[in-house]
Design a protein around this nucleic acid. Structure first.
Lengths: 237, 237
DNA sequence: CGTTCGATTGATGTCAGTCAACCCGAGTGG
DNA sequence: CCACTCGGGTTGACTGACATCAATCGAACG
């Protein structure tokens, strides 16, 4: 039962990924079950690259549990993180219809279980259940909205503000309420945060120290942050 | 025949917008014609706002000809331009499925003719021709890719480079080949360009002057730029 | 216990923002 | 026809914030 490298337990693997994903919410239990045969389960270790930019992709990925960062490199070698995908998120959708190269790298930030559905199977599914198409349009629209906000933030907000917004995002996604405040398990290193908000790792260090001095957060080692005053972060909107 | 404020000529208005748009390319002539009754034609003067951020939207817009900028304001009042839509582009798609508020302002940059299809009609269309759904997914995927690139540029590239990329984009969309180089009719003022790439208007001025000094471009008044050396701009990728 | 990698802190340089003056062309009104 | 104004554009001086470079720290791990 404790097989960490391969998800052998068919009872869990069958249900989880399809049930967790909004895009399949149009399907009922029976239909979901009929899908399970199409799904290939994969486990990725921390640091493992799922696929690289420019590689040929022939399936849709759905995250069962764990975290994956999607990123690109500029010519000068600077990394820009575009997404932090977690449970229930999907990616690789650009290749569902057209044969295209992957537009970014994806790498597991921790032990991650993912489901893969081949492009061909997925297209059949789309034909059979057109509502899935609508769900995808909806999901893509939401993603677009997030990207539009990111662009606005990068274009008009100060680095302080972007730092705050990143913390806020992590708190929402990965934070746990405690008596003293919201405890956040950071998905990224300082350098990762830097590559996410488009500054250098030193700047991230300095801004975090500043926030600690101001009593807004408490830095606990390198991986955790306790947010004492969420309101101040929320003001960044 | 020369009515500039209202497109009265039904023979052109019927065909154009539906034929120009990739998302309807799945339909044949007959099907396109059956659509025309659903379409409302609108003309917007330069500077006119089609809809504002937060307003209730109940239709999809398709640009027949002209240009429209989509933008948001930050709390401090800074404008961030997200898109410059032109002939054949569509927007307002976020509201097709869910009732949502518009996520940005849209404003005509010049005299613009647009077609509107109501959410309800469009949904019926989607049911009748599911291939349109696939086309939309494709178009949204492309838009996502563009946004991802913009984010990478804003996060990792210098302002010089972003300036070059903006020029390149304008050249591709609005440029005309001439003997001396590519003549670009700028869709935006200096301030507009600034709000597009996330810098100040002074910086845009300086960078353009610099490019002129280097012999890469020739500034012709406020509205036109002649690009003498496309290769240098292309190097910005 | 030592090595290593990430994080922090400090000193310095650089580049874009800010503020301000000025320019220039298009309208406008006398 | 000219003077004036007004809006957008350009240019220059200054400032401040982030990048860069470099040294040090410190926790994790063999």
């Amino acid at each position: 039962m404790n097989n960490k490298t391969e998800c052998g337990c068919s009872s869990c693997s069958n249900q989880l990924c399809t049930k967790k994903v909004p895009i399949f919410s149009a399907l009922n239990e029976l239909e979901l079950n009929s899908m399970t045969s199409l799904i290939e389960h994969k486990v990725y270790k921390k640091g493992e690259v799922l696929f690289g930019e420019g590689s040929h992709l022939d399936s849709l990925f759905i995250i069962n549990n764990g975290q994956v960062k999607a990123y690109k490199y500029s010519l000068e070698g600077k990394e820009q993180i575009l997404y932090i995908f977690s449970e229930g998120d999907f990616f690789g959708e650009k290749n569902l219809l057209r044969d295209q190269e992957a537009p970014y790298y994806t790498e597991a930030l921790e032990l991650t279980r993912a489901c893969k559905i081949s492009k061909k199977d997925f297209r059949n599914l789309l034909n059979e259940y057109p509502e899935i198409g609508l769900k995808i349009i909806e999901a893509l629209s939401e993603r677009i909205e997030g990207l539009e906000n990111t662009i606005q933030n990068m274009g008009t907000k100060s680095t302080e503000t972007r730092m705050n917004l990143a913390l806020l995002e992590f708190a929402r996604k990965f934070g746990k309420e405690t008596k003293k405040g919201v405890l956040v398990e950071l998905p990224l290193s300082r350098e990762g945060i830097a590559n996410y908000i488009g500054v250098t790792r030193e700047t991230v260090s300095r801004k975090l120290s500043l926030l600690q001095d101001e009593g807004v957060i408490e830095i606990i080692g390198n991986k955790k942050i306790l947010i004492l005053d969420m309101d101040i972060l929320e003001d960044s909107y």
